[in-house]
């Protein structure tokens, strides 16, 4: 069973449907024993990082997530709260990934949020098995994790940032694999096969 962590952050319906299309058995939960016994754990997230951290803390989830030994995937804000800190609401985050999340700067020709399809590059993980460099993924975000030792894929807006992070059994995607067409489904499927 795949546990999708329930912490009142955004609409997880499209993630649920994507898991369903891949034939996965999943459950939305914030229950500690269900999360710890799941084969895979997904931390989704749409919205504000500071609010996301507050919700996680209220449910005593940060310390629980640290204990998980099975593969964990944070998506979008879910990935950002697994970093050390976020500029969004000056939030102290979980510190799994060694990165401090920053806001994109609006300059000429650079729109914030970064919304749309951007190519992935520098992929260095089994998470991207079968995905060729330059394959596009769907991003919607105003904050980003800079490049760091945990970076396993990059994208640009216009400078390089971390499209994906990994530390031990913890993975993060800044893009939305559930909305990234066939490539996104492949990435989710690779994760589910860990």
């Amino acid at each position: 069973m795949i546990a999708v962590i329930d912490y009142d952050m955004g609409n997880i319906r499209s993630l649920g449907y994507a898991l369903q299309r891949l034939g996965a058995d999943w459950k939305l939960t914030s229950d500690a024993s269900e999360i710890l016994s799941a084969s895979h754990v997904i931390l989704p997230g749409v919205g504000n990082a500071a609010e996301a951290m507050n919700n996680l803390k209220r449910l005593h989830l940060p310390e629980l997530i640290w204990k998980i030994r099975r593969p964990v995937l944070g998506i979008c804000v879910g990935m950002q709260v697994m970093c050390r800190h976020s500029e969004e609401g000056d939030a102290e985050c979980m510190g799994i990934f060694d990165a401090k999340v920053k806001r994109f700067k609006e300059t000429t020709g650079v729109k914030v949020p970064n919304m749309g399809w951007s190519p992935l590059a520098n992929m260095e993980s089994k998470l991207f098995k079968g995905i060729k460099s330059g394959e596009y993924a769907y991003f919607v975000h105003s904050y980003y994790a800079p490049l760091c030792p945990d970076t396993i894929a990059t994208s640009r807006h216009p400078d390089l940032f971390s499209a994906s992070l990994k530390y031990e059994n913890f993975y993060g995607c800044q893009f939305h694999p559930e909305k990234s067409g066939e490539a996104g489904e492949r990435i989710l499927d690779n994760f589910l096969k860990f």
Partner: peptide, 30 residues
């Protein structure tokens, strides 16, 4: 549509309140 389509989709037509928007979000619109 949400169950089947693996790319973002927008819905519109006749939305005139926050409740209308919430109903479509709950149904799976991006």
């Amino acid at each position: 549509i949400a169950a089947r389509i693996n790319i973002p989709f927008t819905v519109g037509g006749g939305i005139s309140s926050v409740e209308d928007a919430a109903r479509l979000l709950d149904a799976g619109a991006d």
